[in-house]
Simulated assay, not measured.
Amino acid sequence: MAAQERPDEQVHSPEQAQLDFRQRLSYGDYLQTDVLLSAHRPITGAHDEHLFITVHHVSELWLGLIIRELGAAMALLSQGVTDTPLKMLSRVVRAQQQLTAAWEVLKTMTPADYLAFRGAFGEASGFQSAQYRMVEVLLGNRNPTLLRPHEHRPDLHGPLLAALHAPSVYDLTLRLLAARGLPIPPEVLERDFTQPPQENAAVLDAWLTVYRDPDRYWDLYELAEKLLDVEDNFRAWRFNHLTTVERTIGFKTGSGGTSGAGYLRRALGIVLFPELWQVRTAL
C-alpha cells in the first residue's frame, strides 16, 4: 500500500493551484501572449530569422520601458525632485544591461546564417527604430535629420519632434544646479534644444563645485553619477552593436543605407554629458 500523503505534500501539490480559467483571467490573457506571439512572423524559411526577430522584438520592449522610466524621471526632475528619479534611472541602467546582453545571443548567428534571409527585409533597419531614436533624443543626442524616417507616421514623428524641442535629461539636471545657486550661464539654460549640447567651461566649474563638496550637494552628486551609469551603459550597447555588425556583415553597407559598421564606429564618439566626464580630469 502506498504511503499516505503527508500534509506538507498536500499543501505544496500542484493540484492546489487554480486550474479552471473558464471564467478567470489567466496568465496568457493578462499578458496578451497570443497578440505578442502573433507579431512574430518570419518571411523566409531561414532558421536564424526567428532568432533575429526575437532579439529585436525583446529589444523594443526594453526600449519602451526605458522611455517610460526616463520620461517619469525627467518629469520629476523638472519639478526639482531628485530622490525618486534615482530609482527610475537605476531601472533604466538595468534595462540597458538587458539590451546589451541581447547582442550576445545574436552573435551566435554566423554570416552565412544572416545572409540566408537578409535580402528578404529590404531596407528595414534598426536605424529606423522610433523607440531607440526617442531614447537618444531624451538623453540629448539631437539631430533633426534622424527623425525624417518617421515623417510618414505622425503618431511616431509627433512625439519625437516634441521631445527634440524640449530639454533633455541633462538640460533638466543643469537647471537643478542653477536652482541650487550654482552659476550656469543663461545661454546654456536657454539653448536651442534641437542641437546637441556644447562643452561649457562654466558648467564644468559648477560640477567641480559639486564634486569637491559631495556632502553638501549629495543629491546632485548622486544624480551625476547615475547619469554617468546611463551613458556608460549606452556606450556599452553601442560597442556591442558595432562588434555584432562587424562579425556578421563586416563592412558592408547597412540595410537602411548607412555605411554600417563605419557609421556605428563614428557613433561611439558621441558624448552625451561632456562635463560629467571632464570633471574627473579637472578634480
Rank of each mutant, 00 (worst) to 15 (best):
V81Q: 14
M109E: 15
A102Y: 11
A206D: 02
L164E: 00
F117P: 08
R118M: 15
E123L: 07
R191N: 10
F127T: 03
T84I: 14
T209E: 14
Y132F: 13
M88W: 13
R175G: 15
T173V: 08
D113L: 06
L77R: 00
E104N: 14
P144A: 04
S129T: 05
R133V: 00
L86V: 02
L164G: 03
V188I: 07
R153H: 13
L138S: 04
G126P: 12
P167A: 12
L172K: 09
V137A: 01
L106R: 15
P159W: 03
W103R: 10
L106T: 08
L172Y: 01
R180S: 12
L139V: 02
H165D: 13
V105H: 06
F193S: 07
V92L: 12
L174G: 06
L77W: 06
S125A: 14
Q128S: 10
Q97V: 05
V169A: 12
R216I: 10
A163W: 04
Q131M: 00
L177P: 04
F117G: 11
L208D: 12
K87F: 08
P85N: 03
H165E: 15
Q96R: 08
A95P: 00
Q98D: 10
K107A: 13
V92G: 11
E199V: 10
P185I: 01
S125G: 08
A201K: 12
A178L: 02
R133E: 04
V188G: 04
V135P: 04
G158P: 00
R148P: 00
R191D: 07
H165V: 08
P159S: 10
V169I: 13
V105W: 01
P159R: 03
D213W: 05
A95C: 14
F117R: 03
M88E: 14
P154V: 10
G80T: 04
